[in-house]
């Protein structure tokens, strides 16, 4: 299998030195395939400060003023918890959380569908108890965050997974992780939702295969199975530490 650049997700120009590693190699090397925590970071060169020529007055409401450089660019190091495990990683200021999760940490469930416009929900993750779009979250702002992805929900054996299978709540499956994560965020907040609550909570998730009708019954079935699941797993499933702020 030929090597594929592993930063293709966002077409990031700044990750030159990560170039040669395929995602599969990356997974193997990092031991992530086996679910083992990995501490990464410091492996990348510091990027150059922004091109002074390109830096023009920005703000739409801005009146250009003479300015000295306000701060240096470069890598920031963030430590965050993903599905219960801690990771430390160097990131560039413009990297998104999705890019960090997919291209650096190997969690490929957050998808890219709408190209990062915030319009499809396929990149949804739970961060600090809130369902958020990882395509519109800067990775460098995620220090200390507690993140949960569909991988963690599946690994915990959350009843949503079986419910989605029982109800055939997918066709191609591309949108499914985003739906499952949004549904999990709802159940964390409201263990006994109405069908209307479910429709509301999934309102930001798009499905090109039009599986919409299957989702509410699947989520309601999962809600019924929650008490049993919580008893079995000794309280809350492990990854959902993200208490609402």
């Amino acid at each position: 299998m030929p090597d594929e650049p592993n930063f293709g997700d966002e077409g990031n120009k700044g990750a030159e030195n990560a170039g040669k590693m395929s995602r599969r190699n990356f997974l193997k090397d990092a031991g992530l395939a086996a679910g083992a925590p990995a501490v990464l970071g410091g492996a990348m060169a510091i990027s150059a400060p922004p091109d002074a020529e390109a830096a023009q007055p920005y703000n739409a409401r801005a009146v250009p003023v003479a300015s000295e450089a306000v701060c240096a660019s470069g890598m920031a190091t963030v430590t965050l918890t993903v599905n219960g495990d801690k990771y430390t990683q160097a990131v560039e200021p413009h990297w998104t959380l999705r890019q960090l999760l997919r291209d650096r940490l190997g969690f490929t469930s957050p998808k890219d569908w709408c190209g990062g416009m915030g319009a499809c929900g396929s990149c949804t993750v739970i961060m600090n108890g809130r369902p958020v779009l990882s395509c519109m979250t800067l990775a460098c702002e995620c220090g200390g965050a507690v993140v949960e992805t569909a991988e963690g929900i599946a690994k915990a054996g959350h009843p949503l997974i079986q419910a989605y299978i029982d109800h055939n709540a997918f066709q191609c499956g591309y949108c499914t992780p985003g739906f499952v994560v949004s549904a999990k965020a709802l159940l964390d907040r409201n263990a006994d939702p109405t069908e209307e609550d479910v429709r509301d909570a999934l309102g930001g998730n798009l499905c090109r295969c039009a599986t919409y009708q299957q989702h509410p019954p699947a989520v309601l079935q999962a809600a019924k199975a929650l008490p049993e699941f919580q008893k079995r797993s000794g309280g809350e499933p492990k990854p959902s530490k993200g208490a609402r702020a």
Binding site: G8, E10, G11, G14, P49, G74, P93, H94, G115, E141
Partner: peptide, 12 residues
Amino acid sequence: MKTWKKFAHVDA
């Protein structure tokens, strides 16, 4: 796929 133009980032 759109590439990002760079910027620096500061926590105020």
